[in-house]
Design a protein around this nucleic acid. Sequence first.
DNA 1: GCGACTCTACTACGAGACGTCGTACGACCC
DNA 2: GGGTCGTACGACGTCTCGTAGTAGAGTCGC
Lengths: 138, 138
Amino acid sequence: MARLGELERAVMDVLWARGTPEPPSDGATVREVTDALADRDLAYTTVMTVLDRLAGKGMVVRQRDGRAWRYQPAAPREAYIAQLMLEALDIAQAGEAAAETGDRGAALVRFARSVTGQEAELLRAALEEQSRPAGEGT
Amino acid sequence: MARLGELERAVMDVLWARGTPEPPSDGATVREVTDALADRDLAYTTVMTVLDRLAGKGMVVRQRDGRAWRYQPAAPREAYIAQLMLEALDIAQAGEAAAETGDRGAALVRFARSVTGQEAELLRAALEEQSRPAGEGT
DNA sequence: GCGACTCTACTACGAGACGTCGTACGACCC
DNA sequence: GGGTCGTACGACGTCTCGTAGTAGAGTCGC
């Protein structure tokens, strides 16, 4: 996954905030993003460049809307974050054989100990759900 | 936490591989790291520079050993990884109020669904252990 | 005591990522 | 038909990182 710079992340935040990915959202135009980041006082073209680079990285997708483009996140924020977490976990594989749960396990344990109780609960629930056959109503 | 380049990570891997942090380990010298990375055919000073930068980033600590320095990881690999994971999770807070489990929760759920069954088990066990009073013998 | 090693400290340089724009130019609205 | 708005490109400065070279000081064998 692509690594994002500070401004790039800010732009993604704007997009994530207003356009959920799969559910139909019209996304945002360069102008809209620029306005959303008004406090940064950025040139219109700066935002355009960033959006363009984000598209190049596959972080956003765009579609024509008249003469302009509308950008929206290629994936929801959670997916991006989960991806980053998995990548972090992967560096535990340092030249060692895969499938082996060495440092990965240790890292997971450390991680589990670091999340707040509330989040631990969420994580536990998610794991639970995953191990279930799944498909239960609400 | 500092972000590491490719070579920096390789060097950290060497250090992590030979010098566990807290337990007394004498760490490795520039020479030793260079030898460990012999296949890369790097100049001695290249490794020295990298180790120096790593020290500047707080990733390694060093102590004199005669005229030379001995480097060792400032923290074990698992700690680094767990830290990266937590940081990834933190970007879920995008300008929103903290303490709220919005995207963080969603990200955790995504993550939970992505780890392999074996790791999910490990994670579950770690969470379990965390919620326990802890302090049980072996 | 001198020369060959070995280490460290600095300095450097090129590539690539990123923040930040400017310019040129086509499309639209009134 | 002249502003306005949007796009496409190109650019530049700063940082990070990989990669080293050089200078100079400490060490050891003879």
